[in-house]
């Protein structure tokens, strides 16, 4: 069974601006897939459909066999772990521990079981020692790792990361990559950081003009300079795709 199925998804904002024009994609369980695209391509709009924050104007989204509908929202939000770009938006509780506990507690966990889930999630991102700190006392990289833990604690079917490498210094960027690689979970990574996509994801999709314009091995897509140029994507200066 696929972790994620999106079929002919179209969406227009209330003001009439059409953002998605029929997106088709599927992600198998355990895959790490990069969703590439220039600013304004509709990446964030697509992501907000995956856990039902926006509801499709047309088409369907299915998470591990469960269609995203009003009556399945609770289940879907448990299964799709969204990590937002600004960790200050994601971490809203007074301490790291409270924040990681928020999702599982909404799902009904309490007491020792909740503690175990929270500590396990924090340990997976290497943040267990800072559990009782308030989020604003952490560095930006630490906050992003805690943001990942907040959704890991919900044991999601698929982890969706919006620009995970933005604003990270090189060391924090590498540490996050190591953590993401160590997780045994399906990942959809939304980014225009092409080297990061190459480093972490075997497969990549290019979203451009509200449709999936390309789908294939990341290495192959990034080697196609014409394809990238057509969709306003560029490798950083001096970067060459290393040999496998």
């Amino acid at each position: 069974m696929n972790s994620l199925e999106v079929r002919r998804l179209a969406y227009a904002y209330p003001d009439g601006t059409q953002a998605l024009f029929g997106v088709d994609l599927s992600i198998r369980r355990g895959e790490r897939v990069a969703l590439l695209g220039p600013n304004g391509a509709g990446k964030t709009t697509l992501v907000l459909h995956l856990n039902g924050i926006l509801t499709a104007g047309h088409g369907t989204v299915t998470v591990a066999g469960t269609p995203v509908r009003k009556d399945t929202l609770k289940e879907v939000r448990q299964r799709v772990g969204l990590v937002f770009q600004d960790p200050d938006d994601q971490l809203f509780m007074p301490t790291v521990r409270d924040d990681v506990a928020f999702g599982p507690a909404n799902a009904g966990l309490r007491g020792a079981e909740l503690d175990r889930v929270v500590e396990d999630a924090l340990a997976r991102v290497g943040m267990l020692e800072l559990a009782d700190r308030p989020p604003h006392h952490l560095s930006f990289g630490q906050r992003r790792r805690v943001a990942v833990a907040t959704v890991l604690a919900m044991a999601p079917e698929i982890l969706v990361l919006d620009e995970p490498s933005s604003n990270l210094d090189p060391a924090a960027r590498r540490e996050l990559a190591e953590i993401l690689r160590s997780l045994d979970v399906t990942v959809l990574m939304v980014t225009h950081d092409l080297p990061y996509a190459l480093e972490l994801c075997e497969r990549a999709l290019i979203l451009s003009g509200g449709v999936i314009a390309a789908d294939g091995p990341t290495r192959k897509l990034l080697a196609d300079a014409d394809l990238l140029a057509r969709h306003r994507l560029e490798l950083p200066y001096g970067f060459a795709i290393p040999d496998a």
């Binding site: 937002f84 938006d89 928020f102 999702g103 799902a107 909740l114 919900m154």
Partner: peptide, 20 residues
């Protein structure tokens, strides 16, 4: 944006009471 993040983690209008 914070509200979206809360909804994404199952917020239904009440804060879960976890501390005993």
């Amino acid at each position: 944006r914070v509200h979206l993040a809360m909804l994404s983690r199952g917020y239904t209008g009440r804060m879960p009471v976890v501390d005993d």
